[in-house]
Design a protein around this nucleic acid. Sequence first.
RNA 1: GCGGAUAUGGUGGAAUUGGUAGACACGUUGGAUUUAGGUUCCAAUGGCUUUAAGCUGUAAGAGUUCAAGUCUCUUUAUCCGCACCA
Length: 825
Amino acid sequence: MSINARYNGKSSFEEWKKDWALEERYNFKTIESKWQKIWEDEKAYKVEMDPNKEKFYALVEFPYPSGAGLHVGHPRSYTALDVIARKKRMEGLNVLYPMGFDAFGLPAENYAVKTGIHPAISTKQNIETFTRQLKSIGFSFDWDRCFNTCDPEYYKWTQWMFLKFYEKGLAYKSKIAINWCPACKVGLANEEVVNGHCERCGAEVVRKDKEQWMIAITKYADRLIDDLSGVDFIDRVKSQQINWIGRSHGAELDFELTDNNGNSLNKKLRVYTTRPDTAFGVTYMVMAPEHEFVKELMSRFENPSEVKAYVDEAAKKSDLQRTANDSKTGVELKGIKAKNPYNGTLIPIFISDYVLTGYGTGAIMAVPAHDQRDYDFAKVFNLPIIQVLDGGDISEKAFEEDGPHINSEFLNGMGKEDGIQAAIDYAKKNGFGEAKTNFKLRDWVFSRQRYWGEPIPMVYCEHCGWQPIPESELPLKLPDISDYLPNDNGDSPLAKATDWVNTTCPKCGGKARRETDVMPNWAGSSWYFLRYCDPHNDKEFASKEALKYWMNVDWYNGGMEHTTLHLLYSRFWHKFLYDCGYVPTPEPYNKRTSHGMILAENGEKMSKSRGNVVNPDEVIDAYGADAFRMYEMFIGPFDQTAMWSDESLNGVYRFVNRIFSLFTKVGKATPNEKDLQAMHKCILEVSERIDQMKFNTAVSSLMTYVNYIAGLDVIPEELYTTLLKLIAPFAPHIAEEMWARLGHTSLIVKESWPHGNKELAKENTITVAVQINGKMRGTIEVERDAEKDTVIAAAKSLENVAKQLATAEPKKIIVVPNRIVNIVL
RNA sequence: GCGGAUAUGGUGGAAUUGGUAGACACGUUGGAUUUAGGUUCCAAUGGCUUUAAGCUGUAAGAGUUCAAGUCUCUUUAUCCGCACCA
């Protein structure tokens, strides 16, 4: 049932809600806003460096302040770390839990194109909405540290860091193929391409060569993989990053090009292979259609028009079309051959788009017997297939498993590893190749032909080339413009701001033009966690002391969708700053966890177009922030996708109310042994489950405990205050309220976390299951840690058991202390 | 195709890591309170069987074990990420 459906024919939904609020014994509206104001006035969550206190840095991904407002997905992550932060605070740690806004981005710019409203204005409004919403949920952020990435005080440092990349040679300009929308005449980021089509207009995206700023993330590829072993990231994050970086070990080999008769053309075709040991099985070569040799050798081909046609067609094709090819296509480069450096054989050369220009050397040696793609191609073009690894049957498909080498001269009989080593050694000795590691990871395309981003602080001078602007001129502010559309060449909208663009060269003082591309979204978010350590510093991006005290982030939670983008970029960025000596550690995050998505009630993704978006404001209005927070935690396993359900939410709402109504039963009473057992059990379970992010079962424990104390005639105060402390991380408002009503003048959020005593939590009488041949026959009550013989005797005296024992002798009796007795007949 | 997950009542999900399957909650049914709806409280609730008692049951199949939701192998389905990466 939705909130609306529950109304059931009352005169209006609004009226029904009013009734509801009036009749509730617990008026969450006034109580929650009261405590939010108190926390703010008291600066309850403000945090400062304190060398005498152990620090804890909890971080969640800061949101992009979209016009749609907060989504119920955001608070899942925020509440989870809020619970953890609050618990750590109560445990006496100095907790930094900050929030800010990732405020540069395409939606604000699109909105500006549509409405003419400057992105700075709409962004500011959105940030205000987000801030109000976040505060209404009662998160324990230190709001004094809040900033946004589009503030010049912040992006000054983003630009400064870009200059450092440039200084160290990691930022460079390069002509590369980008995603190009021919309709919008604009370059698109990969994430703006949906199934090969433009996200905006739906036109099919093609590739286009364009000069772009690049950042050499590939130089860090090895370390980005290797250093994962030292951090506590959930496995799927690690494996996804490793997979994305895609390291493979192999060799680069040179094949000499010749004419049809084997006369050298004085050109060597370099290929990359992970299996140099299969070189005796090479029956043809393939170059990518974009390979430079294709152009250079065009005059030597016997079929130049055919080759040209294929190259042109490949260039026109989108990535989607290229990969959608079921069968292999290609053209032989007639008139030239390659000489196999291992045995001197002359082999034909083809161009085909199944070989990618961006990976390896853009050319391969094809071994159809042991690679399915090569096999498919060989079948289409009737090329010979030579088996060089023994085993398998190559009459139908390639044999891609391992086997000893055959037909391979000096490699014969060797296994895979030995064979690879021998092949590389041979290549080295004869000067035609060497071992080589390759990565799928490409350098980071850092240019966007957009307006709403950080200007790239570079200037182009006819005489001096690209020049960085002096640090003293930072921040290089984004100029105000009124036309946010790119021009016909697909240049950034900034190109039209001629006053801004035309400048002087910092080196020679002559005429120069500013770079008009801006940085991608990922720039500002690549180092924001550093700024939180010292957000108001105008001399440095953060002071050394602050970084030394607060870094690393102890616990970072965020979405899986950022694993290969933001998370990877920011690790790289941090490593670079570390190499420059600006940050004290090589990795920024000690621990990374990830939350599951929240879907609509029908299991679909929430989206505006489907009209199934649950608005946090409405939920809080109807049920209160505490119920909302607790429901977000109770909805299901934290790392898994969960479905929103108003009915379940209502159950949690009832639970929160129950905590309130139990107050009348609290009195001066001494807890008995059973009471203490329940209490300590709950403390231990909740503590442990929060640490393990098993929030749903932590809430279950609290519910079980509440059910227990609800059954008491008088609830001893100790039991109730413990409950309040345990729910404080989940439902801080009601915890404060009831704590105050018990006569306390302190804030419960600053109280200490209760200590669970394992001994007191243990039950003295234990129900032990009795099985015969593994089947349940009954249970017995025994003292904890009772003697084995006592337990067996008790089990045997069970009516059910005695009956069966009368007719058969037990072969074996297994006793698991405090658990089970199994009698085998 | 590769990589990573997941599969348990009408529903969301528990299960101390091999030891009483279904905690906790939703929903449903019955009862109490209430002018009524809602709220609140009590009871029942995996399936089969006429009760007692029992049988059966964690996607499917096989195996290991005194004992399997949990371990091993095989199969199926669903989700996510990457995808001609040589």
